[in-house]
């Protein structure tokens, strides 16, 4: 159990590429933090620096009370779960789980006890004598988790652990990992590119883009108040509509094609209005008219994809409402998010 502190951590590769710009944040003891972002955003690099698999170019990293910049991964008391599980193929499940303990000089009896305990927790007891090649993807994932648990680490690190599983198993493992982390109360850092995983699992989300932290917040904060157009577009499926608009002298933003809304003071010139598809609803006398081209059937909702004066827009309609292509009138349910068109920051 430990809190993790990153103080202006930076990563520059020998070829001069800056993978992570100076980043600072604190993770309190027992929190589940998800690093999310598109590929190449530096999230894995950040995780690997915390694990000690990658050197830290600048800044200080502390786990608990000690600065661990120059501490060997084995001595940081962390456990990591890899995307491809990285199980030792020639060892049985029990040996895989106990290997770290064996290297620490734990006694055989103690190893056996801990492995049995972890196996019990993960429902792996009947598989302890198998080799990884004889296990299914989900079982391998569990063994990788077990290997992490037996060590009683201060910190769990997960590097896209669910990407290799099918959708159904992924949903199930998502819940299991979350439940396990709660039960053990161990601080966890979880890297993913899947915003659904981030939203569902995290106590707090850190959104990264191009080596920069875009926003840190709880899932609700991030969803309700995205700090930038990047976060707005990345978090949430279907993504938020971003409509170009210009602000007039009276503090109202006008979208070409007929939508005008009040914007906060300070917004001038060109702005982007962010409206989530579910924040629009069908109405006879609406705020805006769109031309619907395609309707996607998603079961619980239908997604209408259309255009307003050449700009793409999508709308989520509950399944009990009829919808059709062609001209449709819509009403805003909430106040749109307003972003600066040039910088993409929230206004």
């Amino acid at each position: 159990m430990a809190q993790v502190t990153l103080d202006s951590i930076r990563k520059v590769y020998p070829n001069g590429f800056e993978a992570v710009q100076p980043s600072s944040f604190d993770i309190p003891d027992g929190e589940f933090v998800v690093l999310v972002g598109p590929s190449g955003c530096g999230k894995s690099t950040l995780l690997r620096m915390i694990a000690g698999l990658e050197d830290i170019s600048e800044g200080a990293l502390s786990i608990g009370d000690r600065v661990v910049n120059d501490v060997d991964p084995a001595d940081r008391n962390i456990a990591m779960v890899f995307q491809n599980y990285a199980l030792y193929p020639h060892m049985t499940v029990a040996k895989n789980m106990g290997y770290g303990l064996k290297n620490r000089g734990t006694s055989k009896v103690e190893i056996e006890r801990k492995v049995a305990e972890a196996a019990e927790m993960l429902d792996l007891t009947h598989l302890l004598d198998r080799r990884p090649s004889q296990l299914s993807g989900g079982q391998r994932q569990r063994v990788a988790m077990g290997r992490a648990i037996v060590r009683n680490p201060d910190l769990f690190l997960f590097d896209e652990p669910l990407s290799n599983l099918d959708a159904k198993l992924r949903n199930q493992m998502r819940i299991e990992i979350r439940a396990l982390q709660r039960r053990l109360g161990v601080t966890a850092i979880y890297v993913t590119h899947d915003q659904v995983e981030a939203m569902t699992m995290a106590d707090r989300i850190i959104v990264l883009n191009g080596g920069v932290i875009e926003q840190i917040g709880t899932p609700t904060e991030i969803y309700e108040n995205p700090a930038s157009t990047f976060v707005a577009g990345f978090m949430g499926a279907p993504p938020m509509n971003l409509l170009k608009a210009s602000v007039d002298g009276a503090g109202r933003a006008h979208v070409e094609g007929g939508l005008a809304v009040e914007v906060p003071a300070g917004a001038t010139g060109d702005v982007l209005l962010g409206i989530r598809p579910e924040d629009l609803e069908l109405a006879d006398t609406g705020d805006l008219q769109i031309d619907v081209q395609i309707i996607e059937e998603l079961g619980a909702i239908r997604l209408m994809h259309g255009q307003i004066a050449g700009q793409e827009i999508s709308v989520a309609v509950p399944k009990d409402q009829p919808c059709s292509t062609g001209a449709v009138s819509l009403r805003l349910k909430t106040v749109p998010h307003v972003f600066d068109a040039a910088t993409g920051r929230r206004l």
């Binding site: 000690g52 084995a74 890899f82 030792y88």
Partner: peptide, 20 residues
């Protein structure tokens, strides 16, 4: 990743060679 997992598991160069 196997090398990295072994590093986190505390296997030094000699151990990694012999055990893995």
């Amino acid at each position: 990743e196997l090398v990295e997992a072994a590093r986190i598991d505390g296997a030094g160069p000699v151990r990694f060679f012999i055990d893995i």
